[in-house]
């Protein structure tokens, strides 16, 4: 990622406080971007030994309805790809209560095989940390909290010593299909009629 030019940073520094204050949606987006929601699907979790400490968190801003200016096309596209390749939506929408584990397992193979293929075409995933899960890791002072989330006995200042609980995931590359004009992305799967 390229760092922003100084002029642009200056403009942001001047205007951003007012947007955060008066535009709840913009504030939500900024928080999302800072937490790395765009790129880190799940952060590396580092379990520290000892007493758990509740993390003070800002209350979630409530978003009542989908704001019209937000473009949901890429999300819908991904959903359509997972459905087309791996019947993802069918699987989630079905009530699994009455089926045996073997039946669900058989269907899961369809979902797993197809979604893996579909996902591989669209995103390149990589682990955030290269150490094996369960290994001892050390987070230096000034570590990136977007990439590493500490839990457990969080006291004092970094460096922190802990155990890697999850290596995290990051999307290194995303390449969604281009859409032709007039394509309606809300159609995840058209109805099929056999003639």
């Amino acid at each position: 990622m390229e760092p922003l030019a100084f002029g642009a940073r200056l403009w942001l520094a001047l205007t951003l406080p007012f947007r955060v204050l008066f535009d709840g949606l913009a504030a939500r987006k900024i928080v999302g971007a800072l937490e790395g929601e765009l790129l880190s699907l799940s952060e590396a979790k580092i379990e520290l030994q000892g007493e758990l400490e509740a993390k003070a968190r800002a209350p979630e801003p409530t978003v009542k309805e989908i704001a019209p200016e937000v473009d949901h096309t890429p999300a819908l596209q991904l959903l359509a790809i997972l459905q087309r390749e791996g019947r993802f939506v069918d699987f989630l929408q079905e009530d699994v209560g009455g089926f045996s584990d073997a039946d669900i397992g058989a269907a899961a193979r369809v979902v797993h095989e197809g979604c893996t293929r579909g996902l591989k075409d669209v995103v390149t995933l990589a682990a955030i940390r290269s150490e094996a899960e369960g290994d001892a890791v050390e987070l230096p002072a000034g570590y990136d909290a977007n990439l590493n989330r500490v839990t457990g006995n969080v006291t004092g200042e970094p460096p922190f010593k802990g155990t890697l609980a999850h290596h995290g995931w990051r999307v290194e590359k995303i390449r969604l299909p281009e859409l032709t004009t007039g394509h309606d992305p809300t159609i995840i799967a058209p109805a099929e009629v056999e003639l």
């Binding site: 019947r87 069918d90 699987f91 929408q93 079905e94 699994v96 089926f99 073997a102 039946d103 669900i104 058989a106 269907a107 193979r109 369809v110 979902v111 099929e192």
Partner: peptide, 15 residues
């Protein structure tokens, strides 16, 4: 695994 064609994936799947 032969998935069912309809939207009922688990119910229509033949193993």
């Amino acid at each position: 695994v032969i998935p069912g064609r309809g939207s009922k994936l688990i119910g229509g799947t033949i193993r």
